[in-house]
Design a protein around this nucleic acid. Sequence first.
DNA 1: TTTTATGCAAAGTATTTGCACGGGA
DNA 2: TCCCGTGCAAATACTTTGCATAAAA
Lengths: 151, 151
Amino acid sequence: MFKTEIADCTMEWLRCLRKNGYRLTAPRKAVVEIMASSQYILTPTDIFTLARERYPKLGLVTVYRTIEKLEELGLLQRVHRPSDCQGFIAAYQGHQHMLICQKCGLVQFFDGDHDGINDLMKDVETQTGYKINEHWLQLFGVCKKCRQKNN
Amino acid sequence: MFKTEIADCTMEWLRCLRKNGYRLTAPRKAVVEIMASSQYILTPTDIFTLARERYPKLGLVTVYRTIEKLEELGLLQRVHRPSDCQGFIAAYQGHQHMLICQKCGLVQFFDGDHDGINDLMKDVETQTGYKINEHWLQLFGVCKKCRQKNN
DNA sequence: TTTTATGCAAAGTATTTGCACGGGA
DNA sequence: TCCCGTGCAAATACTTTGCATAAAA
């Protein structure tokens, strides 16, 4: 049920970009290197700052444009949180949901094809007459490490 | 499990504002009248346009400021959707979740204290070591009316 | 060599803030 | 009357677009 391995998919992402007709440029590589290995939700500005350490000439606009492409290819997904919705994180295969640490921002994925959810959706369909096409489930909490650290 | 009644909470909201030390002004009333009875997700601009029909001198800034207060008082909640997160809708008592029609935007509420969800959260807590504090569950689909109308 | 990608600057959106005036209580 | 609330204008953020240059293939 859980994806705990921290795979660095940089090579895979670069291959995917090339396969889809995109050129492999230094700025793109810098952004991909950051995002393909991060377990944290990053905003375009965060990405810009981090990727600049690898490629100082990088412009913020290129970050936006690269995010757009990676999202199109299903490699990156936008994350919605109560306070902001500009965060991005690597998208995992299949139907995945997130558990987000409210202290450190660490993200853990779990899949949503749990019987409970399916039962709930069936109930809701029957009772409302809606045809349900999509569901969003996101959990917020405090991770193991943060719980041990303080209070 | 479902809240199907379409209660117009205008009076209740106005009472709540006054109880919390806010003045009952014409612009605020116009915004409250729109939001307290809407079953649809509205953006600040939508609210502005609609409330202007009732109070033409209304400024967009006042809409933002009123939304802020209503949100603070727990009367209004922000709704996140794949494409945008600037929508608002009346917040219902207790732990509520939304089922949103992808065609017409009609929103139906249901409560999330379903056994399935609780079981899932317990599983996730055990397996990850996280302490879960909050969950977001939102369903997207097509409502009865829209399904009957076209295709 | 050809064509895509980049970075800068400028233009759009969305939202917030400063401030003098107006209207609720 | 007193003070909060309002609308305007300006400021701030965030994101997208136009365009000449740079670099991938």
